[in-house]
């Protein structure tokens, strides 16, 4: 009898060294319809190596995840928190924390109700655009929504990106406003964005400082509207340029430098980055230059004045006044 008991114990110990715990559940919509082919990821806050386990729901939206003892030990010894996530294109990603030890999983049944997400179908395109380094301030240029030939628009946007990239950096450099910062205009090809909510959402996902988006429609002539949005807090959306032309290539305006609004927008962005890095002298100079250009709409101009006042409030030089004043 004792022999049988010991053998059973040994078998259980051996088995538990392999698969120790499991989590089961179902993924449905808010209305209860099952969502098949949803990716279920079990990961930890240790993070760097991606999910520990990845499964897909079946046709009934059901899933079951088995966790091995060795992975539990490894994560728990480093003080990790366990997270289970459901991901499906067209729905918002949803995550839950879960408590996992070798003797307990709580909760062991986790059902997900996913909310639909109109933005997510384009995430692969958006994510493909990310070209971000900490040293570079990024402004992303989305495709303008257009009824024109795709290749025409693509070539125009390539030229527009290049022209902006070159002229803005040379402007900043000539006025000594960079202070070591690099600014890059990055194209995000294949994604037409003409709606403010989408623009802001994708801009945030890209962790951009600014985004450029808009549309070009053929009416009697071609009506093009380009919007420039500051994507960091507080988000500023009111800056747009508009043009009517018989030729879509006029949106680049090759014979002339880029509009002053674009320069002022970049100064606003660069000034804020300087400020966040504690480089107040450069921030002040960028904001002053943007104010002098006087090409920004009210919400930007007001924000610039507030930022300038904030910088000056702690400045001893404010006590300096001309003798005859």
């Amino acid at each position: 009898m004792i022999k049988i008991y010991l053998l059973t114990l040994l078998f259980l110990l051996y088995w538990c060294h392999g698969v120790c715990q499991s989590i089961d559940g179902q993924v449905t919509t808010k209305s209860g319809a099952p969502i098949p082919e949803t990716i279920i990821e079990l990961s930890t806050t240790l993070g760097n190596e991606g999910p520990i386990i990845e499964k897909e729901t079946d046709s009934e939206g059901l899933y079951s995840i088995q966790i091995t003892a060795s992975s539990i030990d490894e994560a728990n010894n480093q003080g990790a928190t366990w997270i289970i996530t459901a991901k499906k294109q067209g729905y918002k990603k949803t995550s839950r924390n879960v408590y996992v030890t070798k003797s307990l999983v709580e909760p062991s049944v986790i059902n997900f109700q996913l909310e639909s997400d109109p933005y997510s179908p384009n995430y692969p395109i958006v994510d493909n655009c990310i070209k971000k380094s900490n040293e570079v301030v990024s402004i992303y240029l989305f495709d303008l929504k257009s009824g024109s030939e795709e290749s025409d628009v693509a070539m125009l946007l390539t030229t527009l990106r290049y022209k902006m990239d070159s002229e803005i950096i040379n402007y900043l450099e000539s006025y000594d406003l960079r202070g070591g910062l690099d600014l890059e205009i990055i194209r995000c090809p294949g994604l037409e964005v003409s709606d403010n909510n989408y623009a802001v959402h994708y801009g945030s996902r890209l962790n951009a400082e600014g985004i450029i988006w808009g549309s070009s429609q053929k009416l009697d002539s071609i009506y093009t509207i380009v919007s420039l949005t500051y994507i960091k807090s507080p988000i500023l959306t009111g800056l747009t340029t508009q043009s009517y032309s018989n030729n879509i290539s006029d949106i680049i305006n090759i014979p002339n430098p880029i509009p002053e609004e674009y320069i002022a927008f970049s100064l606003y962005i660069i000034g804020n980055v300087h400020m966040s890095k504690g480089n107040k002298t450069y921030a002040k100079r960028c904001f002053q230059r943007a104010l002098l250009i006087n090409a920004l709409p009210n919400e930007y101009a007001q924000s610039l004045l507030n930022l300038t006042n904030e910088l000056e409030s702690e400045d001893l030089s404010t006590t300096l006044t001309p003798i005859n004043n």
Partner: peptide
């Protein structure tokens, strides 16, 4: 002098 004084004060305040 007055004009120059005013201009110098301006760039001290705005640009340090």
């Amino acid at each position: 002098f007055t004009e120059v004084e005013g201009l110098l004060i301006h760039i001290i305040k705005t640009e340090n």
